[in-house]
Computed example of a mutant assay.
Amino acid sequence: MPAKRTPTTAKKNKARRRTCRVLLVEASPERRKALEACGTAHRPMSVVHAPTLTQARKYLADHSVDLAVIAPQLPDGSGFDLTAELTRMSHTTAKIVIGVTEDFSKAQQALRAGADDYIVDGLEFEELSTRVAEALDRKTRDKAHVQRVERLRRLCKKLNAAREEVSKQVDILCNDLVTAYQELACQMQNVVQTSEFDSVVQDELDLEALLRKTLEHLMAKLGPANAAIFLPATMDEYSLGGYVNYDCTKESADMLLQQLADSLAPRVAAHQDMIHLTEREAIERWIGQDAGMLGDSELLAVPCMHDDECLAVLVLFRDVDQPFVEEHLDRVSALGPLMGESLERIIRVHHRSLFDPEDAESYGESYSDDADNPFGVDMDDDYDDELPF
């Protein structure tokens, strides 16, 4: 029983026995049989005859051919023109021009038109068969080369798309790493600032000392500036707790600080976030027409929050020629919640001491029973003057 052929083997054998399509373009069909005889068992020839240039063009418009055998002179035109047209139309069609006599100029013209060979009429059959086979073999190799190039082009396109995707993913990864590094650096900076502030206040339970140390800490880190801390006196009103006068006169400072306490502090507390004002128009929107007292100043204000409650408002301002840089903004923004925690600790101890007089005496403090004043101090008497440092 014969062995069963696999589909792959059958496909290869079919490819080997593929019929070669030949177009003979000359006035006489006599050469048709000779061309068919050039075929082999693995490459049989199927020859179509076109006696004129017009008929050849019409056939080529609807069919592809593996080999075109063309006479130089046709009843309605030049075979060299058809050869050139075929060269432009297809790179896989072999083209042989058959001349009547050996003529170097015609052979040269045929090759320039794209012919693969120029043979002279009257060749022995063996020579004709060899020249036809060589022309077809060259085109077969050329076709395989073209297919390989096209396949490589497709692979390069896919590789390029993959490279772009990898590059995009690398960019995303790099951006993520940069973002993560920035977040880590910010967290580390917050840790450093927290440690610095904690080392300054050291669980301070005296309000006046806390305000003084906070302002001293800010001056050391930000440089000279006008600074004030406003504390809540009632639900909607703020009073001055302590301030540093850098470049204001005593009279203008009193008026300005009162304006900041009345206008700016309540709004910053309600805003619950730091504001940074660098333009006169922006300052006027927050303070009002009295903003002119600030002159050409840049202003920072941050609420000191704890559990969504504003326990103080910190305000700093100085001339625009000495702007607050990004590091200053980060430091002031980080100090807000830290100051809020310190103030909450003082309030908590104060409220506990209301029920334990001995504790109150241990801290050496005098506390008030006024519920609207969580710090238990008289802001008007004790903190309206500049702190002594």
Rank of each mutant, 00 (worst) to 15 (best):
P2S: 12
P2R: 11
K14H: 12
R17V: 09
V22I: 13
L23Q: 03
P29T: 03
G39M: 05
S46F: 09
L53E: 03
R57I: 04
L67Y: 01
A68I: 04
V69P: 01
A71W: 04
D76N: 06
A84K: 04
M89T: 11
S90C: 05
K95P: 03
V97L: 07
I98D: 00
T101Y: 09
T101R: 12
G122Q: 04
E126A: 07
S129Y: 04
L136A: 05
D137S: 13
T140N: 12
T140A: 13
K143Y: 07
V146C: 09
E150M: 11
L155C: 06
E165N: 14
Q169M: 13
Y181L: 15
L184D: 08
Q189W: 10
V191Q: 11
V192I: 15
T194L: 11
S195D: 14
L205H: 08
L215Y: 04
H217Q: 10
H217L: 07
H217K: 08
M219H: 12
M219Q: 14
K221R: 15
K221Y: 09
A225H: 06
A227T: 06
Y243Q: 05
N245G: 02
T249I: 07
S252D: 15
S252R: 12
L256P: 00
H271E: 13
L277F: 07
I283N: 01
W286A: 03
M293G: 10
L294G: 02
V302G: 00
M305C: 03
H306F: 08
L311M: 07
L316C: 09
D321Y: 06
F324L: 10
V325H: 14
E326Y: 11
E327P: 04
L329T: 05
S333P: 00
S333T: 14
L338Y: 01
E358H: 06
G364C: 04
D370N: 14
V377N: 00
D378K: 07
M379N: 08
F389M: 13
